[in-house]
Amino acid sequence: MQKYMIFLSVILVLGTHSFANGKQTGNIVKDERNSIYWQDTQVSKVSSEDWDDAVLYCDKLVLHSMDKWRLPTFEELLSIVDYTRSEPAIHPFFSSVTEGSYWTSTDFSPTASRAWTIDFRAGKTYYSYKTTNHAVRCVKAIPVGSKKETK
């Protein structure tokens, strides 16, 4: 776990988003091990969508002037579960967490009418009907060019 800590960092984007309840801090967590950014905004805490809408939501998301977000795979979402914690059982780099299930892009093998979810209260994994509503946390591949910038 200590090893993993090195690969996660939080990018604070101050005041880029305004919500109904006032000015919010829109956070992005950089995950170098998976080469992705994680959405970590107020929306990733409250948004509850069925699977199709979750896919659409990520597809339309623009965050920190970045578009082309997507749902995380099961493997990606599992990697941010911290089983030494509970309620929520998530890596401490994340600040906006619903204590409930989140969608992944991974279909349930026997039928595509279900997809995998991970419940961040304890870390339980389950194949849920796509018509059910669950929380959404989008990811985005770290652009290749951004590596050059850090040099």
Partner: peptide, 13 residues
């Protein structure tokens, strides 16, 4: 503790 079901791959306490 966490048990893992190998039918489909789900885990639960």
């Amino acid at each position: 503790a966490w048990r893992l079901s190998m039918s489909y791959g789900e885990t639960e306490p």
